[in-house]
Write a protein that binds this DNA or RNA. Sequence first.
DNA 1: GTCTATAGTCGGATAGAC
DNA 2: GTCTATCCGACTATAGAC
Lengths: 218, 218
Amino acid sequence: MSGNGYRKSEETRQRILAAALEAFGSSSFSEATTRQIADAARVSLPVLQYHFGSKEGLYRACAEAIVERYREHMAPIATRAREALRSNGTAAAARKHLKVIAGALAGFLIGSNEVKHWAHFVGRELREPGPAFDILYESLWKPGVEVTARLIARARGIPEKDPAARIHALLLISSLLAFQSGRKISLRVMQWSKIGPKELAMIRSALDAQIDAIGGGA
Amino acid sequence: MSGNGYRKSEETRQRILAAALEAFGSSSFSEATTRQIADAARVSLPVLQYHFGSKEGLYRACAEAIVERYREHMAPIATRAREALRSNGTAAAARKHLKVIAGALAGFLIGSNEVKHWAHFVGRELREPGPAFDILYESLWKPGVEVTARLIARARGIPEKDPAARIHALLLISSLLAFQSGRKISLRVMQWSKIGPKELAMIRSALDAQIDAIGGGA
DNA sequence: GTCTATAGTCGGATAGAC
DNA sequence: GTCTATCCGACTATAGAC
């Protein structure tokens, strides 16, 4: 490219986005401030407006970035589960896939430090809908619940459309969140100082027990 | 009563408290504004400072009021469960009490409209600790988890101190909250327009199934 | 015990130079 | 594309009259 040539724009954009993900992760939309984000990204305030139009535009861009990376992580697992559903899998196979999904999700949400902010972002947006609700619901929550519900239906031997399957899916996913959005309180209840590999293993084993029970309960 | 006699103060205090419970229920501490609360209570702004000192003082007063009424509602049920634990109850009896507690909590949290704001208040404070965290943890959460964990231990035939019992207690309580803090998203997933008696019954029945499964899983 | 008036701070957004 | 300077609104809290 002629002229000044080198485009610094994209790099600046990414720096702002990273700072915003951090800010909107640990604070809500209205609590986080654009100044704080601009400082963290080492840009001046108007630069932020230039790239994303408004605070709300930046917020939505964060949601899209999260969806992108979340999909990269969970897509292969979800795809394998859907393939298993297409073939006439047994109840035991469905339970196995449920355990894989729940375990991966637990590791993803609770273990990784990088993703912690994203998980907070998503959780808050889904509890108290804001400007990014629709994109998160359609791209993350809905497909996740759907595949979980279908697996549960298969495990219990009930029709896929049975509302009970969806209720159980919500209960299962929600219980996972005990150690995510309720991290602080869980630590205190369990008298843990952190959730390391040992603690994560205990949680996974409890989830597995719960999934085994779902299958047998029908 | 001599002089001006009649004390209007207490009535004003209650009106402010009610408005604050509503405001802090639907918004966070920093999002809710004292102006909004003062308006709703039909008092001027400084009156609020006079009665509660500061915004934070008002917030704490809300937490104490919630604890008070929550206790009134759940105390009898919790007491009966503790009595059952003292006598050498069977696993089946423990499961029965778990169902009663979970069912009462579900009705309390999801059904009643008056309490909805309180539940949001509590949930938010426990997820993102603020000025009222300690009082809510000690008076609400801790005793609730404790009695649930002991019942689960009894139902599964494991020692009361087994960490697995506390993990399962957290999972159970957290799954309840799917339809409380995640009300909006649950409605969409289930394609319900509201959570009425019929929907509540379905949730209760799913919870019961989950509790039966806990007992048998050991 | 309740009011009016105001101090002091901080938020998002924009104008216009470079 | 990025900056400095600034506007304007909203917030909590207080001072002081009644």
